[in-house]
Design a protein around this nucleic acid. Structure first.
Lengths: 169, 169
DNA sequence: ATCGTTGCAAACGTTTTGCATAAGG
DNA sequence: CCTTATGCAAAACGTTTGCAACGAT
């Protein structure tokens, strides 16, 4: 069984909160439970959307205010979240995008090139296909990233509406 | 029919060389056929492997020598190759990776996290699955990127061999 | 003659680093 | 008290830009 699949199973099976899981991870590595780390877990799991480092920082208190966390610490902590299995990350347009891994079902994405929305979908068949192909090539799967680029339903409707009214694209 | 699929069909159907196709593309957009562009097409299509901008630049003549092409021009031209349908690009570890699109069959990748090799595989089923899922979500497909991360056969064999001899991971 | 292209240097946006200070265990 | 974590400033990284000189059409 692959690591990717393993952590997925944990995610749905186990009933720990993200903070609990992270503290366990930190303790197992003799790392420290700090105010910043606690606060960031809380912030990151308060919303379900995909986000990048800047979006997270924007939602955090500014310098001089309570619970301020510096930019380097945000980056360092995001990496730890990925290691701890709380988040997954992938790259889009030159920056890292994060999403919940822990306690969140496995899925893949549509990426709309017009509105830049990331939409999720699930496909059990895809996992089967992945594992089959990997087996044929004797490749041990750890995880995968599948992004379908194109135009989402909303943008499709909008551009056909515009085409009718004016002659903008 | 999606744009991605369209250019694939062209690629296998048409019998133009990459340079011919690129010149046609340039002419259609009233862009110019320069020494640098000609030279870069030649270089890029002289090898079949995946590459990034730095790897390409390393294989090019140095400053002061014949056929020197500056870094910005390499970047600008790689973008044009993608527009022209000669290359496709995707992001890996924070940089853009390019591969032949024109005259090369559609495929996806295994990425070995140990040796960092990119291995190709083809799956007709994957395309069908992609189009099916997209249809269900009324998403108009332009292209996709599917990367399976894990450990390749060679690295698997190597690490089991080492485990037997010593007790290195 | 025009207008796209090049090379240079400098900027860019994102992420990482070295280091002194702070704080968890 | 020991060591890890933090914030700061600065660097690093891959890539892009403004601009003057150059060159294709």
């Amino acid at each position: 069984m692959t690591e990717g699949t393993q952590s997925q199973l944990d995610a749905v099976t186990v009933s720990q909160s993200p903070i609990e899981r992270f503290e366990e991870y930190l303790q197992s590595r003799k790392l420290r439970i700090t105010d910043q780390r606690r606060f960031l877990v809380e912030q990151v799991f308060s919303r379900h959307e995909h986000f990048d480092a800047d979006q997270l920082i924007d939602q955090l208190p500014r310098k001089g205010h309570a619970n301020y966390v510096s930019r380097p610490t945000v980056y360092r902590t995001l990496k730890e979240f990925v290691d701890a299995g709380l988040l997954r990350s992938f790259e889009l347009n030159g920056r890292s995008v994060y999403e919940h891994d822990y306690g969140y079902p496995e899925h893949d994405h549509f990426y709309c090139v017009k509105c830049h929305a990331l939409l999720e979908f699930q496909s059990e068949q895809l996992i089967q296909l992945r594992d089959e192909v990997a087996k044929q090539h004797r490749f041990r799967v750890r995880s995968h990233r599948f992004i379908i680029q194109g135009v989402c339903d909303a943008c499709n409707r909008q551009s056909s509406r515009m085409r009718r009214k004016q002659d903008l694209v």
